[in-house]
Nucleic acid binder design. Sequence first.
DNA 1: AATTTTTCGTTTCACAAGAAATGATATTGA
DNA 2: TCAATATCATTTCTTGTGAAACGAAAAATT
Lengths: 166, 166
Amino acid sequence: MKSDDFNLSYFLPYQLAILSSRISKLLSKVYGDRYGLSIPEWRVLVHVARREKMSVREIHKCVNFEKPTVSRAVSKLEDTGLVAKTASVQDQRLVEIELTEAGFDVLKGITREARSFEENILGGFSEVDRHQLYVLMERLHDELDKHPEAANRPPMDIEARDDLLG
Amino acid sequence: MKSDDFNLSYFLPYQLAILSSRISKLLSKVYGDRYGLSIPEWRVLVHVARREKMSVREIHKCVNFEKPTVSRAVSKLEDTGLVAKTASVQDQRLVEIELTEAGFDVLKGITREARSFEENILGGFSEVDRHQLYVLMERLHDELDKHPEAANRPPMDIEARDDLLG
DNA sequence: AATTTTTCGTTTCACAAGAAATGATATTGA
DNA sequence: TCAATATCATTTCTTGTGAAACGAAAAATT
């Protein structure tokens, strides 16, 4: 039995999944092989660096991973000494997570490589191309936002969004 | 400790991962909740439908999942009666997988919904927008192809590729 | 022809991720 | 003020994935 009428090669969700997977796997060689970090750990590390102190919950809302995943990533990062956890004074339930000096150093190296990785991938892309790509992606997010069943989009830094679309 | 110099909101691999994840999750409500299929099962089903008969290996090369995952998906699909497995006569190692009539029916319904899903997401996109999006994604794939460490891109149907870029 | 090597599909194993449950603390409301 | 509810982080528990191992069959080599 054979049906010619549907072709995954044209199907956006599939193409997006393949592309994303290829890029993620390649990138994970940078922070995985070279720094021993998993994807959640890398994302958490970057997000913690954006603020002075963050709770698990705050990170969870940003990195698009479930709370347990974030919790485990933070613990691992604590074990390896890249972040420090301290119970909040005002609210004993909260855990304040912040980058250690070692974490800062690792982050510095890793972001440099991440940047060069991205530059490598986007090598042949002009400024206009890049802008177009991001705008198209933004528009897809906007379409998704209209769907009540769609997962929430992790919040974008305001400066970034203004800069991108302004 | 705080560092402002790296922003995930701008980082292509991250943005791509989020976007892809949001779309995949939403789509999986269609074939998951409504048809009880997992992502690998859905992909296998579509790929099997493209040819008269396929082996696990052929599918594996196309769907961007590991062989065990494909094997399990095929077994599950066989259990639910959507595909039929028969040992090849010429080569006893190979398993020929083909769609059953029931599988064909399910596929028909599911592709209709997939199409409408895609149309929904791409609703506000003109033909030019869509073309641009796909061309940009193709170019990213091309950049990845240059990297020796990058995972192989699953082969695209030739007609599709010609049509897309010609 | 016999043996080694390769290929194919499956199974086993280890691990990571998310759902649900848990324990601890805050907040709300009677 | 005390009970009920909500919130936060963590810990099970279950499931699914991919690496490696496995058995069977074909191909290649001697």
